[in-house]
Structures are given as C-alpha cells and as structure tokens.
C-alpha cells in the first residue's frame, strides 16, 4: 500500500506491505539503519525514534499508521563533525561499547529530557504533584530503563545525560 513518511524533515513516498513496521521501513526500505533491531518486540529500546516529539519503539508500530507524523531518527539528531550535545556527551563519557543500543539510547534520552522539562513524574518521583522534576542519577536510570545495554555502559550513560541535562538547566 502507498504511504508517506516524514523522517528527519524529508518526505518519503513508499509503496509497502501493510505488515511493514516503521523500523523495517527505515532499515529495509529507506536505508536509515541507525535505528536498530534488538528484539522486535518493544523489550529492548534499540529501535527508539522520536515521533511528534515523543520517544516510541519503532518496531511496534506499522509504517502505514505513521503518515502525518514527524519522525526523528538518530540520523536526524546529528552527524560526525556536527553531533548533538547528547551524542557528543556519549562519546566523551564512553556511554556505549559495541554501539548497537546507542542510537536508541540517544533518541530516548533526547525525548526523555523534554518529558522531564514538561514535569512528567516517573516511578521513582517522590512527589507526584510537583510541577518540575530534578534529574538525579536515580531519575535518569528509571527513565532510561526502557533501553537495554548489554555492554552495560549504564553508569556512563547516566553521566552523559546528567551532564547535558545540567548544562541545559544552567542555560535556561
């Protein structure tokens, strides 16, 4: 079937099997292989992309359901030589080893910082009624728990995200 996807600001007209997930459309049809397939069942987070500003598992949505939605993949966040602040912080803090979960971690973290700015609580937030959220290590860890990393760069991932989060707070 015909569908139109908007990815990293570019429009792509596709004629695909309705069974195609957004992740498979990216990887098998659009040569955007930054989004990774780690489990294909929403259990690892490697496929995380940002849809209309929100992080989602691209493996658990059909491509044909996503027309009119602005999709951002890791390729849309930054490139070598022009990395986003989170991408750059991941490199300096060694927030990865094999790198396979990394695009998902970075997309997830990018949108997660916005969730925190919007005051969304998490399972470890003491005061549910607070208007603002302070991203300490515990909050970051809980909010990033939908992204598995078997190399277990978790402490470095937390350091990288906290650095960017704190820098943003100072800038505001």
């Amino acid at each position: 079937m015909k569908t139109t996807l908007t990815i990293n600001g570019n429009t792509h007209a596709l004629d695909i099997d309705p069974r195609t997930t957004l992740l498979d459309a990216l990887r098998n049809h659009l040569d955007l292989t930054g989004s990774k397939k780690g489990c294909d069942h929403g259990q690892c987070g490697a496929c995380t992309v940002i849809a209309d500003g929100r992080r989602i598992n691209s493996c658990l949505t059909l491509a044909c359901m996503m027309d009119g939605v602005e999709i951002t993949t890791v390729e849309g966040l930054g490139k070598p030589g022009d990395l986003s602040p989170l991408q750059d912080a991941f490199v300096r803090h060694d927030g990865f080893q094999c790198g396979y979960c990394t695009p998902g971690q970075i997309c997830s973290a990018t949108a997660m910082l916005e969730e925190a700015r919007a005051g969304w609580p998490s399972a470890v937030t003491d005061n549910l009624e607070g208007e603002t959220v302070s991203l300490g290590n515990g909050e970051i860890s809980e909010r990033m728990s939908g992204n598995l990393c078997r190399c277990a760069a978790y402490p470095n991932i937390v350091d990288a995200i906290r650095e960017v989060s704190e820098r943003k707070e100072v800038a505001e």
């Binding site: 929403g42 989602i56 598992n57 949505t61 997830s108 949108a111 609580p121 399972a123 939908g146």
Partner: peptide
C-alpha cells in the same frame, strides 16, 4: 494519563500504577 495533574492529585494510585508499567517508550504509544 500518568502525567495529567488531575490524575496525579486525585487518583495518585493510577498515576503510580501507570508509571510502574513498561517503559517510557511503550507508555507513549
């Protein structure tokens, strides 16, 4: 639903239950 201030203030049991489920990505969908 979990982030709705009315739910957080009046039905915290529901906010807490939602936030304890799945992951940030899954809760968005």
């Amino acid at each position: 639903l979990a982030a709705d201030m009315r739910v957080r203030q009046t039905y915290p049991v529901l906010s807490r239950a939602l936030l304890s489920g799945a992951s940030g990505q899954l809760r968005n969908m």
